[in-house]
Nucleic acid binder design. Structure first.
Length: 710
DNA sequence: ATAGGGTTAG
């Protein structure tokens, strides 16, 4: 459990859930009628074979293009089969006409050779000269005058050396044009490449492209280094179309990419999240006889990590093993990150051990990835063990790792450890407390409910001039809400908004959760905050309270609100709204909302069935939502008993054991709710967080209740 | 940055 948002919202809001659009499907037929009936709201015992059809499309804009759409630009050009080799290669080679050759080549197996530098005895003078120029602030004229004082004649080699050492890009370009004007020697490819490198550093894609066209116009050859520089510059400027365009241009002029250019392009598609295209290029490369190097595998790992695709990650590992490519540190780091995104902490741990066993020393990025994974997984022992190992082995740390350790402490509720670390960081000379550090501490005080310390930290932040961000604000709202310090809550909210914090859906969810357990004036004060952040939500709360609001209106307005809410705040919203309904004596409305939430896919797997056991999974629900779901389930089970339909041997409810300090409330609240109904569910002794009843117990309970009502 | 590709934080 945990963590996408262990920060602000109540614990019932802090359980991560899939943001997949396919979860937002519901049964279209069941929502058409406006007539209310229990049966219509019951989605708990539906046959699993009837897969619901989508009737909501909250996220149509996020749909990915189809595979064929994605592959179109490539299939039109580089990914063609042999016939097009004729067009691609300017000088046809015998190999491509040879019908026995099975596959076209998409890349050159030979890397472009680099010309070797000859030692330049004037290197020191020229470098000093370049440094002086780089650090100066001359006008163009003054710059020109200084150039005339170059300590050694601007021969080819001397000019190249200076060009290579100049920055920023404006000066590089100025010097480049100066050599060009003097016309002392022909400007070879390497001069353009060096100039482009500087331009890329300044993210000047336009300028780079102009240089490239100049090369074409003046007949200077563009080589693999030129193309890879252009492509990576386009990538850094987020001009992905341009990156692909230049890659295709390269083939059209008859130049084969080598593996450096090729993996640069792989990364272009990786950054676009186009897994199929990356794989297509990869397969084509393999078919051409390419043995990808660790850089290519890092790109592959990244793309699968971004997609959270565990099968893809396994594929990368298998390929490297089969091709006997030893992963390097970057590949391991990328794979570890990917394992985290795919939700595989155990595999990340064993991969890390494998990495250490292979003799590699983890760096700060490795450790950051792993600490983050353990924190999100609530693996306290592994996190603390790793922390110890870091210290005893003297493994490298940096400020991101320090802050990640703080966040991990927040995820695990390790207040003391965090305070010690925070204190160490405060005194340390090679790391400074920044807004991440403060926010992590606010997160901890928010989740353990330490309002005094949270307030002190908030005041310290104002004093040392560290701005409170939206997450810090959310943590404080949560903290002061729980402590019933509503005036402090309002103050923090107002100050934050004044200082430019833009409330997001999580902050709104947090305010909404405070509303759910506040009364009278306090609730109104919090609603007034929410009014500034999300007025529609406030209107909706008022609608829910108003008995005369029809179901159809609730349904439409709720759908519309959810559509405009970010994925990870939708369920928290629904949970809080259900709680509000229950608190305000609108129990049937709570059932309606739970039903709608289920239909809209906010509670996947709420009810699961095997032949032996039916289970109600309420771990992702707030107390009120869990109570509502339980009541709904009991109604359904009663109907099943009365109509003498079959039931499984075991019926169970899972509230979760509560590994986090604040998550124990659900099991307790559920237990007392079960008691209130005198329902035959017993808290399991061997399985923490489970409530279990046998079929016989349930049947006789339903029958005795029916008899009592008769 | 010494002519080109890949990895860290709510």
């Amino acid at each position: 459990m945990a963590a996408k948002f262990s920060t602000g919202l109540d614990i019932h809001c802090s359980i991560p859930y899939t943001s997949d659009t396919k979860l937002l499907y519901g049964s279209s037929s069941s929502t058409k009628s406006s007539r209310l009936s229990i049966k219509r709201f019951t989605v708990l015992c539906n046959s699993t074979s009837k897969s619901p059809k989508p009737n909501l499309d909250l996220d149509s804009s996020r749909k990915k293009p189809s595979l064929s759409e994605q592959l179109k630009p490539l299939s039109n050009t580089i990914l063609d089969d042999p016939p097009n080799q004729a067009r691609i290669l300017s000088k046809p080679k015998s190999t491509w006409v040879n019908p026995t050759r099975p596959k076209p080549s998409v890349l050159s197996l030979q890397r472009q050779k680099r010309s070797s530098y000859s030692y330049n005895p004037q290197i020191r003078d020229l470098k000093n000269f370049a440094r002086r120029l780089s650090e100066s602030h001359f006008s163009d004229d003054a710059f020109l005058a200084v150039l005339e004082d170059i300590p050694h004649p601007p021969t080819r080699d001397n000019a190249l050396l200076v060009l290579n050492s100049l920055r920023p890009w404006q000066k590089t370009l100025f010097f480049f044009n100066w050599i060009k004007t003097r016309n002392l020697f022909p400007l070879e490819t390497i001069f353009y490449n060096v100039a482009m490198k500087s331009l890329r550093f300044g993210r000047q894609f336009q300028q780079i492209e102009e240089l490239a066209f100049e090369m074409i116009d003046s007949g200077v050859e563009l080589d693999n280094i030129t193309y890879s520089t252009i492509i990576t510059c386009a990538k850094r400027c987020n001009l992905f179309d341009k990156a692909v365009e230049w890659f295709e241009r390269m083939y059209k002029t008859g130049l084969m990419p080598d593996e450096v250019t090729y993996s640069a392009v792989l990364d272009v598609y990786a950054q676009l999240g186009k897994v199929e295209e990356v794989m297509s290029l990869y397969e084509r490369g393999r078919a051409s006889g390419w043995t990808p190097d660790p850089v290519a595998f890092a790109v592959l790992a990244k793309v699968f990590g971004a997609a959270g695709d565990y099968d893809g990650i396994r594929f990368v590992l298998q390929e490297m093993k089969a091709l006997e490519v030893q992963p390097n540190l970057v590949v391991y780091n990328t794979l570890l990150e990917a394992m985290g995104k795919a939700g595989k902490p155990g595999l990340a741990r064993s991969l890390f051990e494998e990495m250490v066993d292979s003799g590699l020393t983890p760096d700060a990025k490795t450790l950051t990835a792993l600490i983050k994974i353990y924190g999100k997984a609530r693996w306290a022992r592994d996190a603390l063990d790793l922390w110890e190992r870091m210290k005893s082995n003297g493994w490298p740390m940096d400020f991101i790792l320090y802050n990640t350790l703080l966040s991990m402490c927040a995820d695990l509720g390790l207040e003391e450890e965090a305070e010690t670390l925070f204190h160490d960081m405060r005194r340390s000379e090679n790391c400074r407390l920044d807004s991440w550090s403060y926010t992590a501490m606010l997160n901890i005080y928010g989740s353990v409910g330490n309002a005094e310390k949270a307030m002190a930290l908030f005041e310290e932040m104002s004093k040392v001039g560290i701005e409170l961000n939206v997450m810090g604000c959310t943590c404080l709202v949560q903290c002061f809400g729980r402590a019933q310090r509503i005036d402090d809550l309002v103050k923090v909210f107002e100050v934050s908004v004044q200082r430019g914090v833009k409330p997001d859906d999580r902050l709104c969810g947090c305010l909404l959760s405070v509303v759910s357990y506040c009364k009278g004036d306090d609730a109104d004060k919090v609603l007034a905050c929410l009014q500034q952040a999300n007025p529609r939500l406030v209107t909706f709360v008022k609608m829910l309270e108003d008995e005369s609001t029809s179901y159809d209106i609730v349904k439409e307005e709720f759908r519309s609100i959810l559509t405009n809410t970010s994925d990870d705040a939708r369920r928290p919203f629904c949970n809080c709204l259900i709680d509000i309904c229950r608190k305000r004596n609108r129990a049937e409305r709570a059932h309606e909302l739970l039903y709608l939430g289920t239909v809209y896919g906010l509670y996947p797997g709420l009810h699961t069935k095997t032949p032996e056991e039916w289970r109600l999974n309420v771990r992702a629900l707030s107390v009120g939502a869990a109570q509502t779901a339980f009541e709904e389930w009991m109604r359904t089970l009663a109907k099943i008993v009365q109509s003498e339909e079959p039931l499984p041997e075991v019926l169970s409810a899972n509230t979760g054991a509560g590994t986090h300090k604040f998550s124990q409330g659900l099991a307790n609240a559920f237990a007392s709710h079960v008691e209130k109904f005198a329902a035959p569910f017993k808290q399991s002794e061997e399985k923490a967080g489970f409530f279990i009843a046998t079929r016989e117990d349930v049947v006789s309970w339903v029958q005795s209740k029916a008899a009592a009502n008769a």
